[in-house]
């Protein structure tokens, strides 16, 4: 029954193509400046891992890996990245003295240790799962194990999932201390404070463009800072209205020239 550890040429080719990619993607996790890129690298690694699972005669786990991990879990990550946004902590500059050097040394030590140990192991032959997968079927075999020998672990993991779901809801829940203000309340507050009675000026609206990041122009041609969100101002994502004003001026000038002509 025992066959050598060797695997076929097709799988070998697959491994040598995908393995370096997965390592590079993993390193991308280490070096990416933006968390979105890190998340995308992670998805690549997971997809490749799923492929490797399938190649390793574990089709069910491979599919689950792709669907659940790359699909669900990483989407969750992306959601959180979206909520948190860019953060100063994305920076790769190390703040703890000696942390980077020590990490590199320890990691290299770990790699060396694991490699050496794995290299020293006397491997028997590989049995392979082809027989099992064809006789009982991969999914059926797994089901026998999960609902048979490992049923208690299965039940406990179900409990764990439920607990985790409740815990995450508790953690994410935020109790409002007061009802959210509606338009009426906003108006009342404006009048009470006596400021911006007519509301804040709307952002710039131009003949061919309407954007919240572009400030409106006051009658004298200067910019109204009140017309753009403070968040955008803080992120220096306020666009300049100059080009729209210039374009308008240009059009008006051409019209004037045309009428004179």
């Amino acid at each position: 029954m025992t066959t050598p550890l060797e695997i076929g040429a097709g799988e070998t080719a697959l491994f040598w193509i995908l393995a370096p990619i997965s390592v590079i993607a993993a390193l991308g996790l280490l070096f990416a400046r933006k968390s979105v890129h890190a998340a995308l690298s992670m998805i690549v690694v997971m997809l490749i891992a799923g492929v490797f699972y399938i190649a390793n005669e574990a089709p069910f786990v491979g599919i689950i890996q792709i669907v659940v991990y790359s699909g669900a879990v990483m989407m969750l990550f992306l959601f959180v990245v979206m909520l948190v946004g860019r953060d100063a902590s994305d920076s790769l500059i190390e703040t703890i003295r000696g942390q980077r050097l020590a990490t590199v040394l320890v990691t290299l030590g770990l790699v060396a240790l694991l490699t050496v140990v794995v290299g020293q192991v006397t491997w028997g032959g590989a049995v392979g799962l082809a027989a099992t997968n064809t006789e009982t079927g991969n999914v059926t075999g797994l089901a026998y194990l999960i609902f048979g020998r490992y049923v208690w672990i299965f039940e406990v993991s179900a409990l764990l999932l439920i607990t985790a779901a409740v815990a995450s809801m508790v953690l994410a829940h935020r109790t409002r201390l007061a009802p959210p203000p509606n338009q009426r309340a906003w108006a009342a507050r404006r009048f009470r404070e006596g400021k911006h009675l007519a509301g804040l000026p709307a952002p710039g609206v131009y003949a061919r463009h309407n954007a919240v990041d572009t400030p409106a122009l006051l009658p004298d041609g200067s910019i109204s800072e009140l017309s753009v969100s403070r968040v955008l101002a803080a992120r220096s994502q306020v666009a300049s209205p100059e080009r729209f004003a210039d374009a308008q001026d240009e059009i008006e000038r051409e019209i004037e020239e045309g009428s004179e002509r």
Partner: peptide, 12 residues
């Protein structure tokens, strides 16, 4: 090992 290094080096 790379995963471990990521845990140790990234601040986000």
């Amino acid at each position: 090992s790379i995963g471990g290094a990521v845990v140790l080096l990234r601040r986000n």
